[in-house]
Amino acid sequence: MATIFEVHTAHPDAQYAAQAAQAVFDLVDRLERELSRFLTNSDVARINGLAAGASTRVTPTTLECLVIARHLYDLTGGAFDVSIGTGLPLLELDPDGLVVRAREGGVRIDLGGIGKGYAVDLAAELLEEWDLGASLVHGGFSSVLVLEPPPALEGWALTLSDPAAPARLLARLSARQAALSASGLRKGDHIRDPRTGEAVRGRRAAWTLVPRPETAKADRAPREGPRMAAAAVADALTTAFMLLGLEEIESICAASPGLEAWVLPEAGADGSADLMHFAAPVEP
C-alpha cells in the first residue's frame, strides 16, 4: 500500500512483540497483493478489466472489503465511492461464491480509500490473537486503531491537528477500542466529489471515530467473520464527510451511537476556522 504501517504494543517479551509485528507486516503484504490496482494479477486489477457480463473470483478478504465498500456507498449516498463515479452498483458481489460480476464494462475501482483501514482492522484482530490486547496500529498515520490502553492509562492519547498548520492543535482525545481516521487537504491538494466530478470546496479536514463492536473478542476462532471493520468504516466515512453537507453528517452520526465526527471548514475571511463536532446525543 506504499505506506507506513506501525504497531505499538506493550508486552514484557520484546521478541514476542517483534514476531507479532512481523506477522502483521506479512498480512499487510498479502492484502497488498490482492488489493493493489497496479499489480496485474491482483483481484482489483482483474475486476477493473472485466468486460460487460464477465465475472472473476476473488479471495475472501477482497470480497469482504468490497462488501464493506458497497455498504458505505449506500450509507453515504455515493459520497464514498471506490469506483470514483464509474458505477460501483454495476458490480454484483456474490459473497458465497466469491464472485464479482460486472453488469457493464468500464467500472474501475481503487480501494485506496478503504484498504488501509481494512488492513488495520485485520492487523488488530491478529494482535488480539497474539494476546497483545494493549496495542495501537496505524497505516500511514491517517488510519489509527487503538485496542486496550497501556497499563495504568485510561486510553491512548490522540490529537487532531490542522493539516495546513500542523502545529495548531485542534483537539485531544483519549480513546480505547476505537478507530480514528483522518482526511485533510494541504495546500494544493484536492478531493473530487465522485457524484459530480467537481472539486470539493469549503472543507479543510475531517476526522471520524468509530468504536469497535463489543462482540466477544477472546473466544472467537481465528479469522471468523463477521469482521469488526471499524477502521475501514472510519476511513470511508471520513472521505465522505469531506463532501457531505453538515446536516447529512449530523444525521449519520445521530443514527449511529458511538460514532463521532469532526469537521474543519475552510478558513473564513479572517483566516480562522473552528472545529465542528458531531455525535449522537448521549442517552440518559
Binding site: Q15, Y16, A18, Q19, A20, A21, Q22, A23, E129, W130, D131, P222
Partner: peptide, 11 residues
C-alpha cells in the same frame, strides 16, 4: 532482515 516467525502464545 526479518524477525523470526513466532506464534500466538495461546495457540
Amino acid at each position: 532482515v526479518a524477525a523470526d516467525l513466532g506464534a500466538p502464545d495461546r495457540y
